[in-house]
Structures are given as C-alpha cells and as structure tokens.
Design a protein around this nucleic acid. Sequence first.
RNA 1: GGAGAGGUGGCAGAGUGGUUGAAUGCGGCGGUCUCGAAAACCGUUUCCCGUUUACUCGGGACGGGGGUUCGAAUCCCUCCCUCUCCGCCA
Length: 425
Amino acid sequence: MLPLKFIRQNVELVRRGIVSKGTEDERLDKILTLDVQLREKIAQAESLKARRNKASQAIAQLKREGSEAKNEISAMGELSQQVKKLDQEIQDLHTNLHNQLLWLPNLPHPSSPIGSDPSHNRTVSTIQAATLPDFQIQDHLTLYATLGLVDFDAGSRIAGRGFPLYTGRGARLERALINFMLDLHTLERGYTELYPPFLATRKTTEISGQLPKLEEDMYVTAVDDLFLIPTAEVPLTGIHQNEVLLEDELPRKYAAFSACFRREAGSYGKETRGLLRVHQFNKVELVKFVHPEASYDELETLRSDAEEVLRRLELTYRVVDLCTGDLSFAAAKCYDLEVYAPATDQWLEVSSCSNYESFQARRGNIKFRRKDTNKLDYVHTLNGSGVATPRLMVALLETYQQPDGAVALPEALVPYYGEESIVSR
RNA sequence: GGAGAGGUGGCAGAGUGGUUGAAUGCGGCGGUCUCGAAAACCGUUUCCCGUUUACUCGGGACGGGGGUUCGAAUCCCUCCCUCUCCGCCA
C-alpha cells in the first residue's frame, strides 16, 4: 500500500512507476478523484461535529445547573442527522478508496532494470559450481521413475494432477533437503525458526499482497474463509501485524518450513509434467523485518543466505535482477535465483528475494519506534525462498546422476540423507 | 460443540450516559537534590486524520462493526479474541 499523501504529492512519479510494472493508470486517476471528494466531505463533517461538540457541552452545563435544555436539545436533532448522513458518505468513499489502493502495486526501486517482460531481466552473476556430467544423461522424469522417488499417478488419484506423492527415498530426500536448509539458516545464519499455520485469514493474506490481486490463485476453505498459504511469507509477514517493534529488535529474521498451495490458474498446459509446476510443494522461507535505512543491505545478505543453499549443494545457478515488468505486485526490487538443470538445459527459478520496503508494513500496520526522535515509522519487510524443493530436486538429480543410473549426493546433504547416493534397486 | 467470565493507555487497574484521552499505581523521559548514584520531590509521557508555508485550529480512536441518544468507554445487537468448566478428539 502506498501512502495517500505520497501519491497526492508525487502523481507523475507514481504513474510512471505503476505503468512500468504493467499496471493501468486509470486506477490512479480514480484514486485521486476519490481522495479529493473524501477530503471535502471530511471537512464538512468535521465542522458540523465541532458545532455539535460545543452545543453538547452547553447542554451538559445547563443540566448540571439543574435547568431544562429542551430548546437546545431539539435544535441538535437536525444537526445530528446531517452528521450521520455525511459520516455514511465518508465511510462509503473511504471504503471505495481503500479498495482501490489495495490494487495499486508497489513502485519499483530505481535500480531495477526497466522493462516489460523477462527478456529485460539482468543476469547479475552465474556460478558454475559443479562439474556437469559428460555422458548421455537422463532427465528428471526418467530419474524419478527409475529410482522410484515420486508417484505422480498415485498423487493424482488422491488429490488431482499437480499433487505429487513422494515415495520411499524420494520422501526421505525431500525431508533431508528441508532439514539441511533449516539448519543452515537457523544454526549458521541467525534466523529464528518458526513453524507457522498453513492457513491464514483474508486480512493476513492481504498484508503480504497476495490479495486481492491473486485470489484466483489461492485455495480457500469455504465455510471459514481461510486461505491455504501459497508461501510461508504470508503467515510470517503477518506475525507482527498491528505491532510496534523496538528499534533495537531490528532486524528480526525468521525462517520457516511450510507446504505451499497454489492453484496456478491460467498456467494449464505449461510444465504440467513432473515437479516443475505443482499445486503443492515444500519450501523453506526467510522473512526479515528491518530498519528502513538498512533494507537494501539486508536484501543483499538475504540473497546471499539463499544462495548459500545452492553453493553448499554445489549446483550451477545464476542470479537475476528482475526488470520492472517482471516484479511481483508488492516488490520494489527482486533477485531470482535460477538453478541449472543440465538434462533439460533449463534455468529453474528456486528463489525470489524481494525488498517490499514499507509496502507490506503499511498494509499490516507494522511499525517501530525511532530512538532518536521517539517517532513511529514503518519497518521494511523482505523475504526470500531459501529455497523451494521441487525444482531444487530436479537440478540435483540431473546434475549428480552417475553413468550407472545412481545419483551421488553432494557432501553437505549426506548427513541429512544418511547415505552417499541414491541407488536404483 | 455446550455453559460461564472478561477484553480500557507500555504494563497493572478504576471508571453514576454529559469538560474522561480517560483516576490511581508501576514503568519511561526531563528536572531539583547529590562528588556521583539511590531515595524523595516537581514536571512530563498515546495514536490516526483533516487544516495551515508555519505557529495553530479542528475531528476521531477505550477488541472490530452496527444500533439507541441532543450526547456512549459507560445501554442494546453482532462478530473476533482470551480465560475457566463440561463434552468430543489427534
């Protein structure tokens, strides 16, 4: 959510920003019109209320002196009706304005490359960490099957397409990846481990920016209006809603595992096989609440923390600085981490590390008190996947397969998996 | 799911429908005293919105929303949350 005052004072800046993110600017004009109307009504209502308050005090005075105040009271009747009517109009305008504001995306940071689609993204670095196999290699789909790691048919029978059933060593590998990542972030990188609810209220889901725009992509429970989380970002960002944090407590760093649920509406026909695009997957998520002046430094360390997962697993990956048109609704700047899958020769997104600045903090009313001025201010929020497992597993299998069909695991993962390789039986 | 109790300022805790943004205590901040500190004493201490170049002025907020009233922290309805007991259950 952008502050109204800021919008009012920087109309053209806001317009350029949202247009570069691919949003129509009609909504902005609508907001400006509503804002003018609203302030006009507020001024009217407040002057009437000022009169009412004065009269009310006069009545109280008369009563205390023991005299009747019939005339004064009846004179107040009409005034009160007018106030009531104006208040109703103000409320309607306010609701309308608020709903419009919820649809206005965050502005991109000046350092984000300008562009309308992924072709304008900027590759920041490419890390060639592993020796790639030099023999005729199999793709991940074949490897799942020969090693018996995932049963897609059974998953479909249970819940429909896109709900993989991890089996045997596949299930164990999944668990190993999650534990490895959680240990890395919490024991070595100073994140506090959390285990959040996997369902969240509409309000909480609104804070992180998934609602209202992405409602079609979310699973909702019918009777309770609870949303299955598409990422642990949703519950983690909701933790401190309506709170004031101490400046000394910043940054607050949280890491959490969660299952993630995404309807992926509109993406049918793409990547429907395997684990590249599924309705339920696992992810370790990192969320930080930070001091506004530190947020871009924090973005770099967040990215580095997420990268560390890929470094330890000795995978080839690259870091991409997303262009304005490819940024998510709430983000001001975002790095994607893409891991390389050699058999299919694809770069697979396994992490997005974003700075939301005060956008989410405003929606969630998450503040801190500045020690020098003693004033309240919004924190900045950041989050990054650290990282999502399905595509990670794809890259891992394709990168580490052996000529005999087994998969030799990177050293970092061995203690978690319990064996040095995954062998077909 | 059933029955009951309760939600007030950073915390604790008052509050007959009419100067109550809110007593009192604790905490915080500033000051007096002191070589310094403690104690004591004095003062101060919420946030949001509108208005103004500014000083200012005005409005609003006692879990959320609605209602009654000239006027609501105070009365009524409703939702949420917390606690206690009962039932059910991993």
